[in-house]
C-alpha cells in the first residue's frame, strides 16, 4: 500500500493544487479588492503566491521520493514513483503558469 501511495502522491497533490488555484481564481473574480501591489493586481499576486506554494510542495515531494528515508526500495516501485514525482512537478508548472501570463478575470 505504501508503494502505491508513493506512486500516486505527487500527481494527486497536483490535482488538489490545480483545483484549489482554479477555485481561488473563481472566488477572487467574484470579489473586487481593487488594490495593487508593486504594479501587480492583488488578484494576480494571490494567485502567484498559490502557484509558488504548489511548486514548493512538489519539489519537496520529489526530493522525498529521491531520498533513502522516504523513497521506495530500489526496483520497480522506486522507478515509477520517481517518474510520477516528476509528473507532479511538471504538471504544476505546465498547467498553472497562466496565472502569470493571461488576463485574470476578463
Amino acid at each position: 500500500m505504501r508503494d502505491l501511495l508513493r506512486i500516486l502522491v505527487s500527481p494527486f497533490v497536483w490535482l488538489a493544487a490545480f483545483s484549489a488555484v482554479y477555485g481561488l481564481h473563481g472566488i477572487l473574480c467574484e470579489i473586487d479588492l481593487g488594490a495593487t501591489f508593486a504594479g501587480a493586481s492583488w488578484r494576480r499576486l494571490s494567485l502567484a503566491i498559490a502557484f509558488s506554494l504548489a511548486i514548493l510542495v512538489q519539489v519537496v515531494l520529489l526530493m522525498m521520493l529521491h531520498s533513502d528515508r522516504f523513497g521506495a526500495a530500489p526496483g520497480f516501485s522506486r522507478a515509477v514513483s520517481r517518474a510520477s514525482g516528476w509528473v507532479g512537478l511538471v504538471a504544476v508548472l505546465w498547467t498553472l503558469f497562466p496565472v502569470l501570463t493571461t488576463t485574470t478575470c476578463g
Binding site: V21, H25, L47, V87, A91, W94, T102, T104, G106
Partner: peptide
Amino acid sequence: IPHMGLAFFSAASTLVAVP
C-alpha cells in the same frame, strides 16, 4: 468562464497528450 480559468484547463488538456 474568464480566460485565465480556461487557460488552466487548456494547458491541462494539452499536457494530458504527453502520457
